[in-house]
Design a protein around this nucleic acid. Structure first.
Lengths: 197, 197, 197, 197
DNA sequence: CATGAATGAGAGTTCATTCAT
DNA sequence: GATGAATGAACTCTCATTCAT
């Protein structure tokens, strides 16, 4: 039973993720999810009672996958230098910025807006702060090993994450080219890489 | 006649702006606007045929007010130094970042997302690029007068605007304190202010 | 005053007639008439209180024109033979059958249906009976003068008018060619013309 | 499942047929059908998306019943003489002419008018032509067997059908008595029955 | 008289949610 | 558990009709 249920649940999540990726959060209806997943109208209600519940579960399962990916990475990068770690981190961020249509990010922004308007917690805070802390740690470690030169890793990490967030949202509203993203990332790295001016 | 219509139109816009500010873009219905503006169901359709039309007009009238504000400012700042100009610019950005509930920005993000998904133009591009250019001009002038030290005004302006955009969106999803905004702005100013380290 | 009113009234009727001709009766709204006649919404109500009133007046003015036309004809045909009269009559009927788009007949059918359903008088009866009597008179006279051979002019007239009515309605639902109409009319004339078989 | 749906569909059709019979085509709303069939507002949309769809299905199911009736008749009339067949045919036409209130014919005329105005096919053509051909066949056969005397069955059939169509539409706009219909039918039969004058 | 903005009743349509099978 | 037909609330939009100017 439980196994079967899990399979079904996963099917719903997969299809729902596609729907949220292509339509955002607000405009997705239970009907959309029902049709995309091929499940019955009533059947969906056995698992979820609203699009919000589905969305939260989609995000949760995505976060778990992400976390697993992070763990695998940190495993393989256990002995890596800070520069290498930073490169990996920025590559991930770049991917996220450029993901575009296939990504849940628009839906996540919409959801986060709504939660903010209603005083609910959307998890956006946690995600943003976690990423900032990871970057901060990398910078600190690089500073210790002498790979980077930064007296205030916290400030740099914070500044960079805001700029990255800005690129993310601009990518989804205005559009941004890969070249532009690269340029911005390189520019920001001057803050702590040996500047050969 | 035309005057009456303008008065009514303005009434609708004012009330609609409040609605969009408090509910975002997607979830606003014609009914919401009808109720907020105290107009009749059919009456609204004399002026606008969809929430999108209302929204676009709200934004347009807001942009015009903004532009007027900009003109007044540039008038009074005609002889101002670049540092002064910059301060004004950043103060405006800070206000925008912190505006929160009373602001249309969430609705504008939602609208821009939707336009991007559908390949329409939302005006977001124009707004972002214009602001970036203004900042760039200020920095260039400051560089010429010796008030600032920046060899690449374009890169700095771009980087700052992304960070500012990041703060804007973070303010609407995660929240941000005024102190934090100040800190970030000050940090970024180190890029071109004489750094007395 | 009264003169001006008449001019206005005529303007409304002319434009309304076009509307009824192209849209039938049921689907015409006051709005259609307002827009077609270029008169103001409220202005129309000064003259007519419903589409039905407008329609009835359109038909009335059309009937008057028709009647005038009939009078002119009978004037010029005062001394004509019965065969000549019959030809004129059938030519008129043929015109009516083939009028198609520019004609009020669809609207008149719709109106007559509605009146029948509601037990009201639509004038259709009067029009049909009058035409039948005219034909009957022509046949009778022709019989007297020896131009036609018919012992029962009433029966022939009745039969012909039903067939003509059938062609009219078939023309408006199925379509009919001029050739076909001619053929039918000629066929029916065999009933009282000397048949040279 | 499909059976249940069919039962429901039939219920809708039955009630809708009554509505169309009493109100014609144009003035029937989805609401009318909803109320007549006792179904819910949304429920109707599960089966039909417009009054036109409902109407077409009503007509289709009526046509099928008609066709079945025709088959049964031709079965029992397999060995019948042409005169007998003709009598059956005219009796059916007479019934159709006199059906009045309980009939869909007004709605069908309205629908056919609308289709003609919009260049769509309404099925009226097919129905009229089919009936004409049936009559023609009967006359031809009668001619062969010597029961009738007609050198041009096609012309007679055509003429009769127009007159019958005329009676149908006059019945719905002006009214017609059974006696009158009989008289007309008898009159027309003189064209090919041995005329004992 | 004439205007056209304004009203509100009502039709069309969609969708979250329930429930008998 | 699973299904999908059925419900009804809510929204969009149109029009006949009124009324202040």
């Amino acid at each position: 039973m439980s196994e079967r249920a899990d399979v079904k649940r996963q099917l719903i999540l997969d299809k729902a993720a596609e729907v949220f990726a292509s339509k955002g959060y607000r405009s997705v209806t239970m009907k959309d999810i029902v049709e995309a997943s091929g499940i019955s109208r009533g059947g969906l209600y056995l698992y979820y009672e609203s699009t919000e519940q589905v969305f939260l579960d989609v995000v949760k399962s995505m976060d778990e996958a992400e976390e697993q990916n992070g763990k695998n990475m940190s495993e393989s990068l256990k002995n890596a230098g800070s520069a290498e770690l930073l490169l990996w981190f920025l590559k991930e961020q770049k991917k996220e910025i450029l993901k575009g249509k296939n990504s849940l990010s628009v839906a996540m922004y919409e959801y986060a807006f709504e939660c903010k308007l209603n005083g609910k917690n959307s998890g956006a805070k946690h995600r943003f702060e976690t990423a900032t802390q990871v970057l901060e740690k990398i910078l600190e470690r690089g500073n210790e090993t002498g790979e980077f030169v930064c007296d205030d890793a916290k400030a740099i990490a914070s500044n960079m994450m805001y700029a990255i967030e800005g690129m993310k949202v601009i990518a989804r509203t205005v559009g941004i080219s890969e070249k532009k993203v690269d340029k911005e990332l390189v520019y920001m790295m001057r803050q702590f890489m040996g500047v050969e001016e």
